[in-house]
Write a protein that binds this DNA or RNA. Structure first.
Lengths: 111, 111
DNA sequence: TATAGTTACTTACATAAAGTAAGTATATAG
DNA sequence: CTATATACTTACTTTATGTAAGTAACTATA
């Protein structure tokens, strides 16, 4: 019951970032603004869940939905400053993965 | 279809870390070795899922299960070097949360 | 010896989240 | 009018998680 030991900001951040796909979507958008179908195929997420996640991330001010009334209309998703600020988090995960994840099996690394 | 754009190590790391509770469990264990019930109550996770996660994290060499044949037997979970190496990731999430997460509403921060 | 308590789980079942596939809306091209 | 494309939404299935009860091993108390 002592959830009090956790910083509520951290807890909120974790509830966002520990959702499936959220990290990969942000990582993908760090490469630049992209369309729905680009993200969809890049990370092999289902359209249903991508739609859900993008709406959620937009609601949290992490992702921005840009509509270009071209012909045909083009919609691009990009990261806000809040979203771009997550770059160091993803970078640290990459660093860790480089050092500690082995590809052959999923067992423990002896490094 | 082009999953090739993702580093497979990173992808593997994300599939672990983006599971619900994984981050909070590691964050909790960064405070030191702890018993099952301590983790359970600290982060309000259900015993069923905690058991599942600890087994998975142990399998991946991130968590170590220490059995002390005392009376009564004491079982403590701690982080391996691989697990301890995740500290910078959690730290970056904390930094981000400090700067960008507001507590009142879940909307976008204007910072 | 019987009863109850504690820890670390496991099992059975219910609900929530995610995957799959088809459908809709809007627009252009032919 | 038909076909194509993008960005979704909807209906349905599968998987993950939550809840609550149960089990195993041991201790403490009556």
């Amino acid at each position: 019951m002592n959830k009090s030991s956790l910083c509520p900001r951290f807890e909120k951040a974790m509830s966002l970032l520990s959702q499936r796909w959220t990290g990969l979507i942000i990582h993908q958008l760090l490469e630049g603004p992209q369309r729905f179908c680009t993200v969809e195929t890049s990370i092999s997420i289902s359209g249903r869940v991508l739609s859900e996640r993008l709406k959620d991330l937009e609601k949290h001010g992490i992702v921005i939905r840009n509509v270009y009334p071209e012909t045909p209309v083009r919609i691009e998703y990009s990261l806000s400053d809040k979203g771009l600020a997550l770059a160091p988090v993803l970078q640290e995960i990459e660093n860790w993965a480089e050092h500690w994840i082995e590809l052959q099996d999923s067992g423990n690394s002896g490094k």
